[in-house]
Design a protein around this nucleic acid. Structure first.
Lengths: 228, 228
DNA sequence: CGGTTGTTTGAGGACGTTCAAGTACTGTGG
DNA sequence: CCACAGTACTTGAACGTCCTCAAACAACCG
């Protein structure tokens, strides 16, 4: 190991595939920061000082302040947040609140902007990562615009697991009320929807969901046999 | 001019700021293509062969096939579409349908992927453009999740013009039914909402909207004086 | 012309929200 | 150890926004 922070960088998808020299340049400017659950990493409207890459723990991106909160997306280990704001140097559009304790790599935004204009590998990797995020957001927009609350919850469950059949259990990536606004519904509606999903083998135990058969959930969202 | 297609490239935001050598490399692989209104440039699920940059005319990105159509966004001259799919080489998530006749620059996706790994200026510019798109989508998600139909229509009107006060007239970027799903509502609801906006100085004449005073529309969406 | 498609308008109903009350779990301080 | 408050979640009831269905109208085109 040429630098003590390189192994951390390798854990982050954005940097994992970069060649050694690029990693070194990043390692020199990166810092490791701990954060604790429920703390804010940054707030909407602030100027971006850092790019955040999570080594451990997770956060939630929340739009809007005060009463009207809407969760945009959850992020976990290996993911990077707000590359967009950091690259453009524009104020954050959202708040970032930690859902658990954890650690993040902080890359100073100014340094990142400088590096990206000099390092092809890094620039190309940023473009690819942003492309992936773009597709995630497009999917979410499609989802909200074309599916009902029940279908959205079903799809969310499916997206949380890699398995396509059989039983699964997993922890929700945040509080139920956060998951609810992520799906564009209220906590009450989520609660009722989960209850109505019981008959399809979904059981909630605290923040853990037990699914008896993923394929039954999947059948809820697939277009029911449609003649044409 | 060193290449006949360079002036076209300069009209596209993605390429406008690139240095001469980068432009030349792109010009060598780019092609100009005409398209006519209502034709599909590509369809959901297809492998991306090109990156589309519009020189003239516009298109609409539509998610979902058959009955359930949801417009994701409108694009016009100077904008580029589906950089994300082209860079990753993954199937399109959406359809692209022309709203008017026009012309687009086509950059072969494979060539683009190759260039981006060799050309820092291009890679950095792609990352910045994707960042901007990312922010547009985040705004849209916030909008859908936290605002009512009337507020969304009001915000849409405001976003269509640069002016912040006085009278404005502008053409809708597509058919009313497309605008409706772009806003996450049905054509019927849009029609009714526009009617209810008449008392705020909004008048629809075909696909053109006449606004007597933008500030009156803006006042609809700003949080009404709220005591705390 | 009739046929097609986009838009408007009306009536009715469903889905999800809002409001409100109640339960369960947590940590705090007596 | 037990009240107490605070928060998350659940459940119920009533309302309202928006959608669905249906019909009429307008514009366009062979």
């Amino acid at each position: 190991m040429t630098h003590p922070r390189v192994p951390y960088l390798k854990k982050v998808a954005l940097f994992a595939d970069l060649p050694e020299p690029s990693l070194l340049r990043l390692a020199e400017v990166a810092g490791l920061q701990r954060f604790s659950a429920q703390s804010y990493l940054f707030r909407q409207g602030e100027e971006p000082d850092f790019l955040y890459s999570f080594v451990e723990g997770g956060i939630v991106l929340v739009a809007g302040s005060g009463e009207k909160e809407a969760v945009v997306e959850f992020f976990g280990p290996g993911e990077s947040v707000l590359l967009a704001a950091a690259l453009l140097g524009l104020p954050y559009l959202v708040n970032a609140r930690a859902t658990t304790d954890g650690q993040a790599l902080l890359i100073p935004a100014a340094k990142l902007r400088k590096l990206i204009d000099e390092d092809v590998a890094l620039a190309a990797q940023c473009a690819r990562t942003l492309s992936r995020h773009w597709r995630v957001l497009i999917s979410q927009i499609k989802e909200i615009k074309t599916h009902s609350a029940l279908e959205r919850v079903a799809n969310f469950i499916i997206a949380q697991t890699k398995k396509t059949k059989g039983a699964v259990s997993f922890a929700l990536p945040g509080m139920k009320k956060e998951v609810a606004t992520r799906l564009g519904i209220t906590p009450e509606t989520l609660s009722r929807t989960l209850r109505s999903l019981k008959k399809y083998g979904v059981d909630a135990e605290g923040d853990t969901l037990h699914i008896s058969a993923i394929e039954r959930i999947a059948s809820l969202v697939e277009t029911p046999p449609e003649a044409t």
